[in-house]
Design a protein around this nucleic acid. Structure first.
Length: 218
DNA sequence: ACCCAGGGTCATA
DNA sequence: TATGACCATGGG
């Protein structure tokens, strides 16, 4: 456990006391969660949800169905989430990868975390944040997800530079907190919740929930 | 009329 | 390794 363990715990506890449990990731099946991680890329969750609803309505929320759909029809279903042609390619790649495990995420998730992460990163459309979101929220692996909100908040708290590498930020959390999926799940969701509230619009944390923890402005 | 949203890929230097 | 264009819709 590193030196910043107390600070990071304090942030978590304050956020949890303020906002309560976030109940992430919304989604009824592992595959729905996996699809969601791709559809929400650079898109609001609301728009991603519309695309998921379209897939459900079309009976296309399964790897097999996505492989069978023509690209143009798949893209049409994804329209509300933006970047729909790019995302159609990404879902095709995800569905192809799941095919290697007999279309059963539980089988794929049986591999050790490091191996699984490498495989996910090799899939077109899956980068570090998406891979880790899948590992944490679909596979329930203890992996901390780093997103743009997290970067900003860590910087505001004076715990890291703005352009820190992904792996470094991830280690900041995983080296200072118990390695538990339930904790990482809630923590990341709370950081996103906070990011939506105030930490984006205020140059300093005056209006922010974490104001008491932030360095005071000079 | 911008800027951003629970990013990632690809081309270029 | 490190920027920048691009994907593209919808809400503030």
């Amino acid at each position: 456990m590193g030196k910043l363990a107390p600070a990071l715990r304090k942030v978590h506890d304050l956020l949890l006391a303020t906002y309560g449990p976030q109940h992430w990731w919304p989604g009824e099946t592992p595959f729905e969660i996996m699809a969601g991680t791709i559809l929400t890329q650079a898109a609001s969750w609301g728009n991603a949800e519309k695309a998921i609803a379209n897939l459900k309505r079309a009976g296309a929320l399964s790897p097999q169905a996505i492989r069978d759909l023509p690209m143009s029809e798949l893209a049409t279903l994804l329209y509300p989430s933006g970047c729909y042609n790019a995302k159609a390619e990404k879902l095709k790649a995800l569905a192809a990868w799941l095919g290697n495990a007999g279309d059963r995420p539980e089988i794929a998730f049986g591999k050790n975390t490091a191996t699984l992460r490498k495989e996910l990163l090799a899939v077109h459309g899956i980068g570090p944040e998406t891979a880790d979101s899948i590992l944490l929220y679909a596979a329930t692996k203890p992996v901390f997800v780093i997103d743009t909100y997290t970067r900003r908040i860590i910087h505001r708290l004076g715990l890291g530079s703005r352009d820190e590498k992904y792996d470094v930020l991830q280690q900041l959390f995983m080296g200072n907190l118990p390695v538990k999926a339930a904790l990482y799940n809630e923590y990341h969701a709370l950081l996103v919740r906070l990011g939506k509230e105030a930490c984006r619009t205020t140059p300093h944390c005056d209006r922010c929930t974490l104001a008491e923890l932030c360095p005071k402005k000079t």
